[in-house]
Nucleic acid binder design. Structure first.
Lengths: 204, 204
DNA sequence: GGCAAAACCAGAATAATCTTCTTTTACCGA
DNA sequence: TCGGTAAAAGAAGATTATTCTGGTTTTGCC
């Protein structure tokens, strides 16, 4: 199982082999050269196919970018959902949001790097609506889960608007720094610190 | 004083008028259409100049992007430095980091939006080294300031690596959400919450 | 198996875009 | 005023994205 199980899961089977290969090589290019600097030609060369095939599968460059982006985001969200499913208290839920995030980034550093890099491009591209819908759905579900612990949820400080920022903000910031090489220690090593710290920051 | 005092300060004088205008229109395009989608042609059209003039001043598209990016980042940093200069305790320093950040974003929403959007493009482009150096310098200085409060600084929880993430992570996350329209309340209204919350999260 | 329809793939042709180059013009100090 | 340097214009060239046309393979169905 290599790091491309994400693609295998999303585009399974023999028929989609080239599709997966294009995406895999495109991911490499995007990470290596940056989104703007990777050309269709470069992707084509890496997987020894034709521009026709690429455009057949993805329509245009944004199509490749978006397919990769949504695949990664969905996998991340699935991972979160699995962790979140069997939590029975607010504290557990907060811990699992943070830990599942840190774990996913450490397990999929290339994908994480790509997610950070590509977000703004996708947000401006032809799939901006889909991105908005997905994000809105994600936030709605997370909100429902966090507010679903009855009385305990009331202990949460202040308006809910800022709660998610308080929970994931620090972890997100640190993961970016780690992926950029600005700090060395793996985010996993700080699970406790981030989780505990987030929990404290929620108390009034 | 419009929102382009940042440009006036950085490229002053009559001679630089076109230069500023190009940057101003380019900023508009980048925000409106996204970095990838804005063409030199579009910028040219907006300020009624020629491609020759644009390339004379900036060399290439990345040059425009980087000039804007560094201008914004420097202004933001100057704002931080001014706030930070007259703080005399760790608590005050933490507060001023957060408040100066929130204030700057609210005062310059277009620039802030642009900063978030353009970062990854600059990080991959021909000015990546300059970006790295600037960031490294910024972190070094902030670290020195925060650790310069003698005994008080020792009360800070755990390794310093994660301290900056704990401080600015939530604010940053919330500002992005606000600029994207996902939340409505101005970041300024949550100054106290973010500052207090960050301070608490630092205590052991 | 045989057939039609759809999906798939290749590569040349086209169009959009970036960048360079040459020429002209404006500015400023001596 | 004059000479030099910077500024500006716009045509020409290079790169890159996208389309189009034609052929091949796979699939669903009888």
């Amino acid at each position: 199982m290599n790091q491309f199980h994400i693609l295998e899961k999303r585009f399974p089977g023999r028929r989609a082999a080239l599709k997966r290969d294009i995406l895999e090589q495109a991911l490499y290019c995007f990470i290596e050269l940056g989104v703007e600097a990777t050309t269709i030609e470069a992707i084509k060369a890496r997987c020894e196919t034709s521009v026709g095939a690429i455009y057949h599968h993805f329509g245009n460059k944004q199509g490749i970018l978006s397919a990769l982006f949504f695949a990664a985001q969905d996998d991340q969200r699935q991972h979160l959902d699995r962790e979140l499913a069997n939590t029975n208290s607010l504290r557990e839920a907060v811990y699992s949001v943070i830990c599942s995030y840190l774990d996913w980034v450490v397990a999929n550093p290339e994908w994480a790097r790509f997610l950070y890099q590509a977000r703004s491009a996708v947000a401006k591209g032809p799939f901006q609506e889909e991105l908005k819908d997905r994000n809105a759905k994600g936030f709605r579900e997370l909100k429902a889960k966090l507010l679903g612990f009855g009385n305990e949820s009331n202990s949460i400080v202040q308006p809910f608007e800022i709660v998610i920022s308080l929970i994931v903000g620090p972890s997100e910031n640190y993961c970016k720094a780690w992926l950029a090489g600005r700090v060395q220690t793996s985010p996993r090593d700080y699970r406790e610190e981030f989780a505990e710290s987030a929990w404290r920051s929620l108390q009034r």
